Computed example of a mutant assay.
Amino acid sequence: MAPADGMKITLVYAPAARELLECELELPQGSTLADALQRSGWLLQHPELGSDAAICCGIWGRKAARETALRDADRVEFWRGLRVDPKVARRERFRSQGAKTAGLFAQRRPGAKWGY
Protein backbone atom coordinates (compact mmCIF):
# COMPACT_ATOMS: atom_id res chain seq x y z
CA MET A 1 0.00 0.00 0.00
CA ALA A 2 1.15 3.51 -0.79
CA PRO A 3 1.26 6.23 1.81
CA ALA A 4 -1.79 8.51 1.96
CA ASP A 5 0.10 11.54 0.65
CA GLY A 6 2.24 9.73 -1.93
CA MET A 7 2.54 6.84 -4.34
CA LYS A 8 4.93 3.99 -5.07
CA ILE A 9 6.47 3.82 -8.54
CA THR A 10 8.77 1.24 -10.12
CA LEU A 11 11.36 2.34 -12.69
CA VAL A 12 12.93 -0.18 -15.08
CA TYR A 13 15.77 0.31 -17.59
CA ALA A 14 18.00 -2.09 -19.54
CA PRO A 15 21.18 -0.14 -20.40
CA ALA A 16 22.67 -3.15 -22.24
CA ALA A 17 21.74 -6.67 -23.24
CA ARG A 18 21.13 -8.97 -20.25
CA GLU A 19 21.47 -6.05 -17.81
CA LEU A 20 18.46 -4.69 -15.92
CA LEU A 21 18.11 -1.81 -13.48
CA GLU A 22 15.05 -1.62 -11.28
CA CYS A 23 14.24 1.02 -8.69
CA GLU A 24 11.23 1.61 -6.43
CA LEU A 25 10.42 5.19 -5.46
CA GLU A 26 7.92 6.92 -3.24
CA LEU A 27 6.78 10.13 -4.90
CA PRO A 28 4.21 12.79 -3.97
CA GLN A 29 0.84 12.76 -5.73
CA GLY A 30 0.87 14.58 -9.07
CA SER A 31 4.47 13.68 -9.94
CA THR A 32 5.34 13.21 -13.60
CA LEU A 33 7.47 10.68 -15.41
CA ALA A 34 10.29 13.26 -15.64
CA ASP A 35 10.10 13.82 -11.87
CA ALA A 36 10.50 10.09 -11.24
CA LEU A 37 13.54 9.94 -13.52
CA GLN A 38 15.12 12.95 -11.80
CA ARG A 39 14.46 11.55 -8.32
CA SER A 40 15.91 8.12 -9.15
CA GLY A 41 19.38 9.56 -9.81
CA TRP A 42 19.73 7.55 -13.03
CA LEU A 43 20.41 10.71 -15.06
CA LEU A 44 23.84 10.98 -13.43
CA GLN A 45 24.72 7.32 -14.09
CA HIS A 46 23.09 7.10 -17.54
CA PRO A 47 23.04 10.52 -19.25
CA GLU A 48 21.45 8.98 -22.39
CA LEU A 49 18.15 8.85 -20.47
CA GLY A 50 17.97 12.63 -20.59
CA SER A 51 17.60 12.82 -24.37
CA ASP A 52 14.16 12.21 -25.85
CA ALA A 53 15.57 11.08 -29.21
CA ALA A 54 17.71 8.16 -28.01
CA ILE A 55 15.46 6.62 -25.37
CA CYS A 56 11.69 6.05 -25.42
CA CYS A 57 9.73 5.82 -22.22
CA GLY A 58 6.38 4.45 -21.24
CA ILE A 59 4.12 3.24 -18.47
CA TRP A 60 3.30 -0.48 -18.36
CA GLY A 61 4.56 -0.98 -21.94
CA ARG A 62 2.59 1.90 -23.48
CA LYS A 63 4.50 4.88 -24.80
CA ALA A 64 4.06 8.02 -22.69
CA ALA A 65 5.42 11.56 -22.73
CA ARG A 66 7.72 12.67 -19.95
CA GLU A 67 5.09 15.16 -18.79
CA THR A 68 2.58 12.36 -18.09
CA ALA A 69 1.26 12.32 -14.52
CA LEU A 70 1.90 9.06 -12.68
CA ARG A 71 -0.48 7.01 -10.58
CA ASP A 72 0.15 4.70 -7.66
CA ALA A 73 1.79 1.34 -8.60
CA ASP A 74 2.81 2.49 -12.11
CA ARG A 75 5.76 0.76 -13.77
CA VAL A 76 7.84 3.29 -15.71
CA GLU A 77 9.97 1.72 -18.46
CA PHE A 78 12.79 3.15 -20.56
CA TRP A 79 13.60 1.48 -23.91
CA ARG A 80 16.71 1.66 -26.04
CA GLY A 81 16.20 1.95 -29.78
CA LEU A 82 16.71 -1.09 -31.98
CA ARG A 83 20.08 -1.30 -33.69
CA VAL A 84 18.73 -3.36 -36.58
CA ASP A 85 15.21 -3.68 -37.94
CA PRO A 86 14.07 -7.28 -37.16
CA LYS A 87 12.67 -7.74 -40.66
CA VAL A 88 15.94 -6.72 -42.27
CA ALA A 89 17.91 -8.99 -39.93
CA ARG A 90 15.72 -11.98 -40.83
CA ARG A 91 16.12 -11.31 -44.55
CA GLU A 92 19.90 -11.11 -44.17
CA ARG A 93 20.02 -14.39 -42.21
CA PHE A 94 17.90 -16.11 -44.85
CA ARG A 95 20.11 -14.75 -47.63
CA SER A 96 23.33 -15.90 -45.92
CA GLN A 97 21.99 -19.41 -45.15
CA GLY A 98 20.60 -19.98 -48.61
CA ALA A 99 17.03 -20.64 -49.64
CA LYS A 100 17.28 -24.43 -49.53
CA THR A 101 18.98 -24.72 -46.13
CA ALA A 102 16.82 -22.48 -43.92
CA GLY A 103 13.50 -22.86 -42.15
CA LEU A 104 10.91 -25.19 -43.69
CA PHE A 105 13.24 -26.02 -46.56
CA ALA A 106 16.10 -27.33 -44.41
CA GLN A 107 14.91 -30.95 -44.43
CA ARG A 108 12.72 -32.75 -46.92
CA ARG A 109 11.53 -36.26 -47.42
CA PRO A 110 13.19 -38.23 -50.21
CA GLY A 111 11.33 -37.64 -53.45
CA ALA A 112 9.26 -34.73 -52.06
CA LYS A 113 8.93 -31.38 -53.80
CA TRP A 114 10.74 -28.36 -52.37
CA GLY A 115 8.74 -26.61 -49.68
CA TYR A 116 6.59 -29.61 -48.73
Rank of each mutant, 00 (worst) to 15 (best):
D52C: 06
R90Q: 11
S51Y: 08
G50I: 14
L82D: 06
Q29N: 13
A36T: 08
Y116W: 11
W60I: 07
P86N: 02
G6I: 10
D5C: 07
A16W: 00
R90A: 14
E67V: 13
P47M: 10
L49M: 09
A69P: 04
S51P: 01
E48W: 09
K63C: 09
P86V: 06
G30R: 06
R90E: 13
P28L: 10
E22W: 00
V76G: 08
W42G: 03
W114V: 14
A53W: 05
R91V: 08
I59L: 03
M7G: 06
L33K: 02
R93S: 09
L70K: 05
R62D: 14
I55P: 02
P3I: 14
H46L: 13
M7C: 08
S40A: 14
G30I: 06
R18I: 09
R108Q: 13
T68C: 14
A99S: 04
A106S: 04
S51V: 14
K8Q: 12
Q97Y: 00
A106D: 01
G98R: 00
A112T: 11
W42Q: 03
L82P: 00
Q97N: 02
W60P: 00
R91C: 09
V84M: 08
A69R: 12
A64F: 07
E77Y: 04
P15S: 04
F94C: 05
L21P: 01
G115Y: 12
A112F: 04
K113T: 15
C57D: 07
P28G: 12
W114Y: 10
T101S: 07
S96H: 01
